[in-house]
């Protein structure tokens, strides 16, 4: 085992895949001088100068451009820095990449990975960068067939799932937690890839309530689980790691055991990804539910900057409260 920072896990995954496949190219802003705007590709431009491209501050244009490179046979990794910025690139991702294979009746592939820093909430107060730099975008894309969405939190999962995303022949939205790029974690010494299907991971076994926590909510959920344990409530904590394809089976099995479900995500509560999980459970294991499903998410308000960001974000107490309400 060795320790690695989250941003280094991203760089390492890209580096391994660039070594493995000469068609992998990296495109984005600040790539050459800073390894990307969030320094998540440090060392890549030095190791692969011919396949690391600086792009002008034109996310829409260069994301379309990267799509074209994929159509020409490349396997681009596109750094979009803040996931909020992908609003500008939605035409390329939603109207383009997600549809090209379908329009070719399955003849062409779109092997492309859009890497984005998602959300802003960290273990502490979060980055506080406000309404255009701290949003969670997973539910923007989850309504678009043709895309896959990967949202891990821990460095070990970032490395394994980013490798799988790059190797995948379909467009993948790869989200990493924005406020946790300095998170350190253990990774195994051997070469590994984590498959996109069946990716949910049981972080803590429990018997009273199932708690699904997405990405940056995981460290908060871990704390909540500890507090609840002291009060005699046994929580089964699940990290889905991948949202599309969503590993329904593990969550369903857990809900069948506990009969109770709380979902927590940093994204706004209304039509957030938790709504989808709640709906799946209502459809597929309604008879196992012994209490209403609870969702914990950011308030349905734009995100303020600085200290005000945390005002609308979920906290450990919110998770504890939601669990207790149905436990």
């Amino acid at each position: 085992m060795r320790q690695i920072y989250l941003n280094k896990a991203i760089a390492e995954a890209v580096m391994i895949e660039m070594k493995r496949d000469e068609k992998v190219v990296l495109m984005g802003e600040d790539i050459v001088n800073r390894g990307g705007g969030m320094s998540t590709f440090l060392g890549v431009p030095q190791a692969f100068p011919d396949r690391s491209m600086d792009m002008p501050l034109a996310e829409s244009g260069f994301t379309h451009f990267a799509n074209g490179a994929a159509l020409a046979g490349y396997r681009p990794v596109v750094d979009l820095m803040f996931s909020d910025f992908s609003a500008i690139t939605m035409d390329a991702i939603v109207n383009g990449a997600a549809k090209f294979r379908f329009n070719s009746l399955g003849k062409i592939s779109m092997p492309i990975t859009y890497v984005m820093a998602n959300g802003g909430r960290g273990v502490y107060d979060g980055v506080g960068s406000g309404c255009n730099h701290s949003q969670c975008v997973e539910s923007w894309y989850s309504n678009v067939p043709g895309l896959k969405i990967v949202a891990p939190y821990y460095p070990v999962d970032i490395l394994g799932l980013l490798r799988a995303s790059i190797q995948d022949n379909d467009p993948v939205i790869f989200l990493y937690p924005e406020a946790s790029i300095g998170l350190r974690g253990e990774i195994p010494d051997e070469d590994y890839v984590i498959p996109l299907n069946g990716a949910a991971k049981i972080m803590n076994e429990g018997s009273d309530v199932t708690l699904v926590a997405i990405q940056s909510m995981l460290p908060l959920a871990v704390k909540a689980v500890e507090e609840l344990k002291k009060e005699g409530i046994s929580v089964e904590l699940i990290d889905p790691r991948v949202l599309i394809p969503f590993d329904e089976e593990k969550v369903i099995n857990s809900v069948k055991k506990t009969g109770k479900l709380v979902i927590v995500h940093e994204g706004h509560k209304r039509a957030g990804y938790g709504s989808e999980i709640a709906a799946i459970m209502a459809e597929k294991c309604f008879e196992s539910l012994k209490a209403p499903v609870k969702r914990v998410g950011a308030l349905n308000a734009p995100i303020g900057s600085g200290y005000t960001e945390a005002y609308i974000m979920p906290h450990v107490e919110d998770i504890v409260k939601a669990v207790k309400e149905i436990a």
Binding site: N67, G68, A69, L71, A72, G73, A92
Partner: peptide, 22 residues
């Protein structure tokens, strides 16, 4: 390929042309 939303066809196929050259 083109896009029903018009403009994006230019940078998309510019990227394709870049791929041909490379």
């Amino acid at each position: 390929t083109i896009l029903g939303t018009l403009g994006g066809v230019v940078p998309t196929n510019t990227g394709f042309a870049w791929g041909l050259k490379k």
